[in-house]
Simulated assay, not measured.
Amino acid sequence: MPPATLAQVRAALRDVVPRLADLLRNVPAADPIAIGAWTATDVAAHLTHVLQLDTDALAGKQLPEVTVTAPGMADLNAQLLAEDTERTPSLLADRLASLATEFDEMAARSQEATVDWLQGVRLPPSVVAGHVLEECLIHGDDIARATGLSWPIRRDHALLAVEGGALPLITALPPAAFLNEEKAGSFRARFDLRLRGGGRTLMVFDRGSLTLETGPANNIDAHLSADPWAMMQVFIGRQEIWKPVLAGKMSAWGRRPWKLAGMLKAISPP
């Protein structure tokens, strides 16, 4: 699959964000826990912070200094949530919709091939938009699960989030950014990832580093065929791998398929 274009991701966001805003407006007053210690409205506030940061990136504004790892981003997110006390679902929905409009307008005017993102990484605007899409899909699902509300995910949107957001971010960031330093330190493996409806990516884990390759898939430990939304959920730890396997949404084969368990222990997305 060719790289996602900015127009494709913007179109996806114009479909996803209004549904996400409607989801937020229906969060009950009880404000249930959604993920970790975050309530549904904590997640909603976090989403507005993501949109603001990514809009600032497109605008060329200075971004917070942070190391893009799971611990580094956890600290930044905690700081932003502490500074932002708004937790009224309807007001957060309005804020999200307004920021999404601003982001889309900024993206439409963007003439730069790349922009400065967190940790000084240079990203194409399409990847910044892909990051917004990924966050909206994942955290919309967190809110829906907590509240019992509906949050259907289109496969093409999930594929754009993975191939247009997550995978380019892995390539752009330092090779340890998406890993658990302790658990990945001795792990070595090569996986042929085949996203259904999309392309193939070679994931190379080598003692504390994760790199992606697109050439011939040689010396492969395991091949993995996955529905993109199922892959997202497993990769970020929202779902155990056996559930999509039993549902036919993921399958693995090769010389050492058991190494997939080591991969899931090694990864720690920011």
Rank of each mutant, 00 (worst) to 15 (best):
H46D: 05
L6T: 06
F103Y: 14
L159H: 02
P216E: 10
D94W: 09
F205P: 00
R196W: 09
R196L: 12
L91T: 10
L167Y: 08
P124M: 05
A59W: 09
T55C: 07
L179N: 02
L149E: 06
R200M: 08
M250A: 06
P18S: 12
A107K: 09
L202C: 10
A97L: 03
A12L: 06
R207S: 10
A113F: 11
P18G: 11
P257G: 03
T48C: 05
A78S: 07
E182I: 14
A166L: 15
P269I: 03
D206I: 09
E213C: 13
R10E: 12
A166I: 15
E65Y: 14
V17Q: 09
R122K: 14
V17S: 06
I143V: 10
A172C: 03
Q8K: 01
T214I: 07
G36L: 02
R194E: 11
A82C: 11
A113P: 11
A184K: 02
M250S: 04
T101R: 06
D22N: 12
I220C: 05
L159V: 07
L80A: 12
L160R: 00
W242P: 13
V162I: 13
S150F: 13
A44K: 02
R256E: 09
G165A: 09
N77A: 12
A252R: 10
L80C: 08
C136L: 11
I236L: 15
A30I: 12
S251F: 14
Q8Y: 00
E134G: 13
A261V: 15
L80T: 14
D31P: 06
R200P: 08
G185D: 08
E163M: 05
T55I: 12
W229N: 03
T88P: 04
I153P: 01
T211Q: 10
P32D: 02
P152C: 02
R109E: 11
A82K: 10
V127L: 02
N218P: 14
P71F: 01
H49T: 13
V234I: 05
P168D: 04
R95T: 12
P228K: 00
G237Y: 03
L169Q: 01
V16C: 05
D15R: 15
A12H: 05
S98K: 14
F235W: 12
I143W: 03
A100L: 07
E163K: 04
G36A: 02
S110V: 12
A37L: 11
R145E: 13
E65A: 15
W253C: 08
R200S: 08
G130I: 08
A166V: 15
E182T: 15
A226E: 00
V128N: 00
Q52N: 15
L76Q: 01
L118M: 10
A78V: 06
D56L: 10
P270G: 01
V115K: 05
L133N: 01
A226N: 00
E134M: 14
D56F: 08
I241G: 02
G140M: 04
V127Y: 01
P228R: 00
D31N: 09
N26P: 14
S268T: 12
A74Y: 03
A93V: 00
